[in-house]
């Protein structure tokens, strides 16, 4: 029971780090980015290459995953995404589905279609027992890393100058521009940060979620659920939603395995029926 809770929390925190970037682009900037998972996958494979093939330590592999996905995010944002911000939702959907399909084919071509695992150092393998509860070291590490990142994100958004610029740019682009805020740069940086976090999540989660070319399609719905259920007014909403989803999914798979992914889809649809209008509407945002 406690183990399930523990696994669920680890899973949920992982989902939060994966989806945090999406909650900004989809939730705050109102851009339908179905390709978010592609950045997570890019990070996962970047870590895979540097750790497994080049023999770089695991920790540095995570950093590499973050940097690679962030750079990729910044590049694509400046070259492609920037043209699509102002287009209709249908265009955004088509565009990002296109990116997903391309990423799937590219990874399939370069890395092969089978599921792969990043080599974990022996220190992180096995379990430790705290207060009589056996906990996987790896999952404990995930909780610690993701917890720290969440705290940093929360502080960054509410306490720093960049955070207030971002909130201003999202609330009213024109006024923000008038006040001398470089909205394009703020969005690009945010996008890069979100992609980087996704990449880090992809690398961290390779052990739990698996890593194969259809990763972006497989987990697209999870990211969307986090953003939908969590709402967009603060970072706390998506965080709680991730935990709920993580625990719900793990518990569902443990107790009623025959239902499979049923539980979470149903949760999502129920929430959408329950709060259809308020989900993506944020007071003050355009």
């Amino acid at each position: 029971m406690v183990t399930i809770l523990f696994d669920g929390i680890a899973y949920g925190m992982l989902l939060f780090v994966l989806a945090a970037g999406l909650s900004v682009t989809l939730g705050l900037m109102n851009f339908v980015n179905l390709a978010h998972g592609a950045f997570a996958m890019a990070g996962g494979y970047a870590a895979l290459v540097v750790v497994n093939r080049l023999g770089v330590p695991f920790g540095l592999g995570l950093v590499a995953a973050f940097l690679f996905s962030a750079a990729l995010g910044a590049l694509l944002e400046r070259t492609l995404y920037v043209h699509v911000y102002a287009k209709s939702h249908l265009d955004q959907v088509l565009f990002t589905i296109g990116l997903v399909f391309m990423s799937v084919a590219i990874v399939d071509y370069t890395m092969g279609s089978s599921q792969q695992f990043i080599a974990i150092p022996p220190v992180l393998q096995g379990q430790i027992t705290v207060l009589g509860i056996g906990m996987s070291k790896y999952r404990l590490m995930i909780i610690v890393i993701c917890g720290v990142l969440t705290a940093l994100l929360q502080l960054g958004l509410t306490r720093t100058r960049f955070g207030s610029r971002l909130r201003a740019a999202v609330d009213d682009q024109r006024v923000a521009r008038g006040l001398g805020i470089n909205v394009g740069a703020v969005f690009a940086l945010t996008f890069a940060l979100g992609s980087g976090l996704a990449g880090l999540g992809g690398a961290l989660g390779a052990e739990i979620l698996g890593l194969d070319p259809i990763f972006p399609l497989k987990y697209m719905i999870y990211f969307l659920i986090v953003v939908t259920v969590g709402g967009t007014s603060s970072i706390t909403g998506p965080f709680l939603a991730s935990l709920l989803l993580g625990i719900g999914d793990v518990a569902g798979k443990y107790y009623v395995p025959q239902l499979g992914a049923f539980v979470i889809y149903t949760i999502m649809i129920v929430v959408l029926i329950w709060r259809p209008q308020g989900l993506f509407v944020r007071k003050g945002a355009r």
Binding site: L94, F95, G98, M102
Partner: peptide
Amino acid sequence: YWQFWIGLFLVLIVL
């Protein structure tokens, strides 16, 4: 890799 070309086509169509 048929999927790659579908993807490319979708991206181009929007751009």
